[in-house]
Design a protein around this nucleic acid. Structure first.
Length: 463
RNA sequence: GCUCCUAUCGUCUAGUGGCCAAGGACAUUAGGUUCUCAUCCUAAAAACCCGGGUUCGAUUCCCGGUGGGAGCGCCA
């Protein structure tokens, strides 16, 4: 049975990189008819916040990456204590009474000699009963695992054989005390207890893997298979961070990137199936996903490509769906119609851009009369606008849609004078040098408002 | 400093020894599509890090160098 997990710690808003890790885990589970588990690693009481856990849960829901099982490490402390006691009893682990100051001095001395810092093993040979007594007497201690010398190697599903030297590691601390396990220890215990078959996680965990393997050995447990995903990178190829833009999923969602687009984009960061397809449905992703095709090197997060993918998804939205999404981003008093939605659809990178794009329909900006002249030359502009105005007046209210308006106006415009007619019309309707087409403006504004705006333009020319 | 990972156009990537005088997408540039902007269409420019091997033949395999990255907590 395939069982995978995503194990975030709620110490910040859900990161876009975590979304990708979650997605790959989720896809791997679905592809193999396995189980996807979410394990909240909330053992650091100082840094955890409920708000962040809620952010993770909420966004997994929005992104449709819901877990099949959910656990919190804070509810599992008994398991860790049991295994800690077992390891001490079997003498695979021992109490260490060295103070932080002693350790610090030791570390410094070794670094000065040009050696990698490593615990001396001072407390490794302490008498067990003696140590127990000191613990009971309330002396400060930590628990260390005996790490045998030798090579630790494993086969990464993405990277192949990876080897580390355990001799460089030293006896590692696995718990602050019997009730407070440290990260690498609780991870291993949970992965064993939850029968995790494959650990799919970010490359930053690669150096943790040998440490965890040592713990599996001490526990006589069979380790899962590992896959270390390449990192998501900033423009300068450093690990993706706030320095170059948003990293929290909620920020992207709030700006109006569609969940499906975000998933599609992030899926392609570090993975690609055979062929040239770029847009994938969730079903296609499940079918195509193959962890052996995951890239080894990091991938730069390119917002331009995200914008393009998002536009593809916006283009695929029905007008009703798009309208519903738009309404969250504009003032309540703005009454939008179908013509407006159609006009802005191909101009939207993300739904959050909508307010700025729709503004033209609700507020005519101040503009200079010279802007009305096509290529800066007044060639009968006022008469042309009055002619257009008269024609517009003749169109029935009921027939004031894009198609009709386009037909009626183009019939009036001589082929060689398009600029002379359409430019001033568009400027009078929008008050700006860039905007949707005059026909899109007319149909969106409606007859009355269109005529009003043209009159304003004519007024400017009279003055 | 130590350990580990890594290396195809600016970016994401296809490519698993000959089919590659290296393909696609984003971005860029030029042109076209009933005025502007956007969309759309067409075209252009743009890459196998370097040096050794292995081989009849290397972008593809091996080694070294260089570049880039990550990790080195009684954090996760």
């Amino acid at each position: 049975m395939i069982r995978v997990r995503m194990a975030p710690s709620p110490t910040g808003y859900f990161h876009i990189g975590s979304v990708r890790t979650t997605l790959y885990n989720w896809l791997f589970a679905k592809k193999n008819k396995g189980v996807f588990i979410l394990r909240i690693e909330d053992t650091d009481k100082e840094r955890n916040r409920k708000e962040f856990e809620e952010d993770i849960l909420k966004n997994l829901e929005i992104l449709d990456l819901k877990p099949d099982e959910l656990y919190r490490q804070s509810e599992r402390t008994d398991f860790y204590t049991d295994h800690l006691q077992k390891l001490i009893k079997e003498d695979r682990a021992y109490y260490c009474f060295c103070t932080k100051e002693e350790l610090e001095a030791e570390k410094k001395a070794m670094e000065e000699k040009g050696m990698a810092p490593k615990y001396s093993g001072k407390c490794a040979s302490l008498d067990k009963e003696e140590a127990e007594k000191r613990v009971k007497a309330g002396e400060a201690y930590v628990i260390r695992l005996r790490v045998p010398e030798g090579k630790i190697s494993f086969t990464d599903m993405i990277r192949g054989e990876v080897e580390f030297d355990a001799g460089l590691m030293g006896d590692m601390i696995i718990a602050r005390n019997l009730k407070e396990p440290l990260y690498n220890f609780s991870v291993v215990i949970d992965d064993i207890l939850m029968k995790i078959s494959h650990v799919i996680r970010g490359e930053e965990h690669l150096p943790n893997t040998p440490k965890q393997l040592v713990i599996y050995n001490a526990l006589n447990a069979k380790p899962p298979l590992f896959a270390h995903l390449p990192l998501l990178l900033n423009k300068d190829r450093s690990k993706m961070s706030k320095r170059y833009g948003d990293v929290a999923v909620k920020d992207y969602l709030e700006r109006g990137y569609l969940p499906e687009a975000l998933i599609n984009f992030v899926a392609l960061l570090g993975w690609h199936p055979q062929g040239n397809q770029e847009i994938f449905s969730r079903e296609e992703l499940i079918n195509e996903f193959d962890i052996s095709r995951v890239q080894k090197a990091g991938a730069v997060f390119d917002i331009e490509k995200l914008n393009w993918i998002n536009r593809q998804y916006i283009a695929g939205l029905s007008e009703e769906d798009l309208t519903a999404k738009i309404e969250k981003y504009i003032p309540e008093e703005w009454k939008i119609n179908q013509a407006m939605v159609r006009a802005i659809k191909p101009r939207l990178d993300k739904i959050g851009d909508v307010k700025e794009l729709l503004m033209v329909y609700f507020k005519l900006p101040e503009y200079d009369r010279n802007l009305l002249f096509w290529k800066g030359e007044d060639r009968d502009t006022k008469n042309i606008l009055e002619k257009l105005s008269a024609e517009i007046k003749n169109i029935e209210d009921k027939e004031f849609d894009l198609e009709n308006v386009t037909d009626k106006i183009t019939a009036l415009v001589p082929d060689d004078k398009k600029g002379d007619y359409l430019w001033p019309l568009r400027v009078s309707l929008s008050g700006s040098k860039t905007s949707p087409t005059p026909f899109e403006l007319l149909s969106g504004l409606g007859k009355e408002e269109s005529l009003r705006r043209i009159q304003i333009a004519v007024g400017k020319l009279n003055g």
